[in-house]
Design a protein around this nucleic acid. Structure first.
Lengths: 332, 332
DNA sequence: CTGAAAGCGCTTACAG
DNA sequence: CTGAAAGCGCTTACAG
């Protein structure tokens, strides 16, 4: 391995000078610079970032703890984080926790030792102890989660308005009996926001019959189960707004298997715009969260925090979209 | 920031001793060890991995250059890589290249400077210059690609046998006129293998009518286009074997939009078992590549190479599965 | 503009 | 079992 010393020796200058031409940090005379550059060229010297990190105390490493990369929304957030990060010279250290608290804590320690300059935590919920440990590391942190705690820098969309608008859309399409299918029995803060959005839309339109079903955590499977309950209840509503796309798809599957047609018999709307929603028949009407942008904006925020800029703290909201597709019927 | 020096001072020992208790590298008397541990506990000292890396010349960093994390198979490979890597103390440095040669070269340099100990290259094809540059870095490399070059450590399934078996399966189901829909106009080595598998199956069953269609690179869209051609040709075949699931789904979409029923009118088989294939109706019959395992096995191989073990070089093949679902009809 | 020296936070022979 | 010292490959005041 060829080091800065070798280059200095070969170019007959001091290592200080070599360092200066590599980093363009101080003036170097043209002749000397040329000589150094030539040696670098010839030897194929490449600076060792580890050594540099040690002295500059800058690792340019960002730790990203995700729940599960297999979820397309997670992958999209990571893509956004990485893309912007790379633009500013930061690299991503990827850690998949599969929602295990112990794993999250382990990785937090790991990332600290690796001198990560900032952290992302992405997942539905994080245990309080994890959040506390993360805070104790004294690094900038940005969260993407459904359960927002105090003093969290958090990027998301306005879930309340999103569900409000979706419900409103169904009402405008002529639906008067709309149920809401909620995720999680222990409700996250975001889930509460969504429910409020649903109820508000009914209220604003002077609709009386609100009804909320709750599915457990194993989304698609449990939703399918719950679907059986809904099937029996089918004369009491014409549309279902779901807390997320996995639930919406699970319910649609169940409906179809039980001879109910979507959207002819029942309309279904999701939330999240996962990739599968476009492949499902009928294509799922849903709310689009710009996950890639969410990641990108989060990274910009984190970089500002690293720089010490006072940045917009707390919640940051991005625009959502209503993806109107074929799982909702217009009633006359 | 609290360093090994602080711990040494507080515990009234030398930094050598502190290092020894941290790393359990040499015997330390019980009393001294206890004293040191106590100080570490109290101060919350955590070793700086950057400093350690510099002296041990071990970064425990693995560079992973992927095409696009949004593709579910890529995410699965990365999950496999990470999971095994973490078991052995390695961390993943994620780099998304979006198949740009320049980006790949940039990241290769970057990973070199960051002292990555090994590399993964995952993507359909890699330019020769990229492969050469990667080799010149003199680090262990494992590839996941559809275009296998010489001297590549490569993990995959036996694509030839996979397509052979799939074609055979269709034949056993009573299909006698089967077309093959190929990816890429410039064929990769793996694509050639697949085509050979298709032709071999026909030959072994004494079927004459082979026919190969070729779609361009933008898979789903182009496949949909090609589907229109197939629709016109529909009396000449009863089943289509596709080079990958994206193509299969694109064609199925096109068939449905043109009033053809899958599998009643035409059977369709894919390759790859992407997640969307389970959401599509009918669910897609396809070949399952164990992407997670592919990543995991690759990481095990890479770790061996890093250790200097002579490992199984060159191609390594994993078992595939025939995912029999509903897009194939049994003909009587 | 240039170089000698100190130092980043560790590990590891070496000597005792 | 323990410590003093050298050194990993860099950057950066400091002095000239």
């Amino acid at each position: 391995m060829i080091t800065i010393k070798d280059v200095a020796r070969l170019a007959e200058v001091s290592i200080s000078t070599v360092s200066r031409v590599i980093n363009d940090s101080k003036p170097v005379s043209p002749e000397v610079r040329k000589r150094v550059l030539k040696v670098i060229e010839e030897t194929g010297y490449k600076p060792n970032d580890v050594a540099r990190s040690l002295v500059t105390r800058r690792s340019y490493l960002i730790g990203v703890i995700v729940s599960n990369l297999a979820q397309s929304y997670v992958a999209d957030i990571v893509r956004g984080i990485e893309e912007i990060g790379k633009m500013y010279g930061y690299d991503i250290l990827l850690c998949s926790s599969y929602s295990s608290k112990e794993t999250q804590e382990k990785y937090l320690q790991l990332l600290d030792r690796k001198q990560a300059e900032g952290l992302f935590l992405v997942g539905n919920m994080f245990d309080n102890e994890v959040v506390e440990l993360a805070k104790s590391l004294n690094k900038p942190i940005v969260y993407f989660t459904r359960d927002v705690k105090e003093n969290m820098n958090h990027i998301s969309i306005d879930c309340n308005s999103a569900i409000y608008e979706m419900t409103n859309y169904l009402i405008k399409e002529g639906h008067k009996e709309i149920v809401y299918v909620s995720d999680f029995e222990d409700r996250s803060t975001v889930e509460e926001d969504k429910i409020k959005g649903y109820l508000k839309a009914l209220e604003d339109n002077e609709l009386e019959n609100s009804k909320i079903y709750v599915v457990g955590s194993n989304k698609h499977g449990k939703a399918y189960e719950l679907g059986k309950t809904l099937v029996k209840d089918t004369e009491n509503f014409t549309a279902a707004v779901c807390s997320n796309d996995e639930i919406a798809i699970g319910i649609m599957d169940c409906f179809m298997d039980n001879g109910l047609k979507v959207p002819d018999d029942i309309s279904v709307a999701g939330f999240g715009n996962i990739r599968e929603g476009k492949y499902v028949r009928p294509e799922l009407t849903t709310i689009g969260e710009p996950y890639y942008d969410v990641g990108a904006v989060g990274m910009r925020m984190l970089i500002k925090m690293i720089k010490g800029d006072k940045t917009q703290q707390g919640l940051m909201e991005l625009p959502f979209t209503l993806e109107k597709r074929n799982s909702v019927k217009t009633l006359k």
